[in-house]
Design a protein around this nucleic acid. Sequence first.
DNA 1: AGCACGCCGACT
DNA 2: GTCGGCGTGCTC
Length: 819
Amino acid sequence: METAEIVKVAVSAAPYSIDKPYDYLVPPELLETAVPGVRVTVPFGKGNRTSEGIVLARTQGEKEPKLKPLLSVLDREPVLDGDGVALALWLRQRYFCTLFEAVKTILPAGLWYQIREVWHLAEDMDRYTADGMAAGIRRAIPVLDALFAAGGTAELSDLEAACGPGTGAVLRALQKAGVTVCETAAKRKTGDKQRRMVELAVSAEEAASLTEKRSSPQRREAVRLLAAEGRMSAAEVCYYTGVSMAVLRGLEKAGIVAFSEEEALRLPDFSQVEPSGPIVLNEEQEAAFQSILALTKSGRPEAVLLQGVTGSGKTQVYLRLVQEILDQGRRAMVLVPEIVLTPQMMRRFAACFGDQVALLHSALRMTERYDQWKRIRRGEVRVVLGTRSAIFAPLKNVGLIVLDEEQESSYQSENPPRYHTRDVAKYLCARDRATLVLGSATPAVETAWNAEQGIYHKALLRRRYNQQALPQVLVADLKEEIRAGNPGMVGRILRRELAENLERGEQSILLLNRRGSSRYLLCGECGHVPECPRCSVALTYHSANGRLMCHYCGHSEKASDACPVCGGIMKHVGTGTQKVEEELRELFPGTEVLRMDADTADGRHEQLLDRFEKERIPILLGTQMVAKGLDFPNVTLVGVLAADLSLYVDNYRSAERTFSLLTQVVGRAGRGGSAGRAVIQTYTPENDVIQCAARQDYRGFYENEIRLRRLRRFPPFADLFTFTVSGAEEGAVLRAAAAVREELRRLFRLPELAAGAPEVLGPAPAPVMKLNNRYRYRCLLVGKNDKPTREAVSWLLKWFAGDRANRGMNLFVDCNSME
DNA sequence: AGCACGCCGACT
DNA sequence: GTCGGCGTGCTC
């Protein structure tokens, strides 16, 4: 048989159950360009739908008749090298995703092209001729109606919206008959850090008259807002009025409003930062530095836990290590949980390494991020500093990877594949024989265990920077407040301390744990709580726009004063930051309170924190984010409003997270000249986690926690796989989940999997049982995340997808997930 | 998943 | 007779 050039392609249209490298012929015109690592378009499936793909390898082989040729090559040079392909393969087997999903995770979003099918009528095609030629093609008439109505050219997605699914097949049939032609446009996505702005395109009066009658109330509402506010972001208009983007697009079509793009806020430019002097380490830092340095010279992949209390100067150690690695002719990665909270870290790295460092953070526009990525690939960068996804920066010859605050949950991706940065870092360190440094004041229990077992090395920083004493910590019992008839969130002790700070002109930080702290409405008569129509959660009340919103699916509706069930009066309940803010205003009239939470601080943390410091605003009130990051010399009081709120979350990590959060926030107090105080309010003052946090006693916390974990078979003693089945019909989902459990039980009786006695539990409803109108039940497998187990899980996923009984349902797997 | 093929019942 | 339902099987 004839031989031909063949490429192995990871195809985006292939779901997990049939995912593998698919072979394609290289047509003569693509012989030059279709090399490993370039993205391509290929025909896939019976209908030869155009699908994106990436070339994994190129070979010569037999020209089998089933092979189809590539359609096009999208890149002039490869975007993924051999290391990248190997990493994608690793991600697939580790996180049960498709090859293409893995590749997409590795490559920067700015690179992504959106493939769109644009359909045209054939030249000189009129309706009469088209109808004649389309005779015998099913459902051709409505599709032609839509295409003619659109002026002869339309995108597939628009036609599908108008004519329903299956439109693609009709169009292809019409193409065969010569009625239509298709053009596949590869279009670069616009930068996601561009904000879409909208404003009136005509005068306010004109706009009002144009929407006066025969216009929907949504349109009128949007126009009224824009007339009052002028130019604002489209997302904001949607937020305040509750209209959808479709309404705004409609107004644009009618010529009433105009869209434009504006750059989202950016971090300060560090290119002009003054070069810093030599880094001086104290004795303890020097010892830690030397021990880690020795590891980097071992030529083996090693991991080390650098445990240092808040303010012990871990960053100094990182900086020295990176310097040394660069001197060894190797490169380094430094990862941080949330870069907006660590501008000083960025400043210091910029000062130390100048343009050899690439800063990769979420505030970069997509094009900037892509530019940085290209610089790294070209080898112009020797240090990468960034958040989670920076671990995929194409840095070569890596000698050191640092994960700062390694216990942070932001190191785990929240969308699939839900990789953990620590695991990817371990893979990279093994590949490049690099050293992994896990830095933390309060390490994850698994990490501390690994250090204890000698799997990780250990380095300690015990002393706080200028020998400062730990804050004095008061634990206040909220039960007593209730007994004393104080229903508020600020108890007497905290009130007294706040008053004292106000008097002395010193600043205070108040922390409200986000979980369980949102605000919702409740009917005083019948107890009705407005719920999301699509998800099984209560709607959260937003006072900024007077609307009820779902934090899971984005549903939004106008809040009403009367109960929709019985007509009773609705009351506000819950303890969101907004409510605490009101309480503070009542307690301390005239005192300025700066509120920082996800709603107020969207992309503006730094400005808010800057104001807090410069303007010396007396009280900063916020969620988790106030616990991390900056040190303020004038802050001498820290208050935790309800320490328990994050403690009783149904998650094996809740104790660890609460301890870490409390320890960090307590450490915020008094880092300047004055000694600090911390008040921890709680309903359970005797709780061990809270007691240990108050004493800043990691050891005590760890000893307790590891005992519990061993008892309950939680990580690190076992790995928890959650199998979530979702679908529109609750009964079917429950049945499918039960089938998953049975299949798991059967699988894990196999001798090679039975080691360590895996346990299978469930099915039980997921924490949010209904999400976007889909019910979710899950099963739990307590076992070991090893190769045979992963292979069994992979088999189970394929089995599930292949069983007809599970049609319309979805199964996904997570291991030791944060949720 | 998404699509085609194929085999059955209800209609012009 | 044929239009359209969904059950079955495959995707280079």
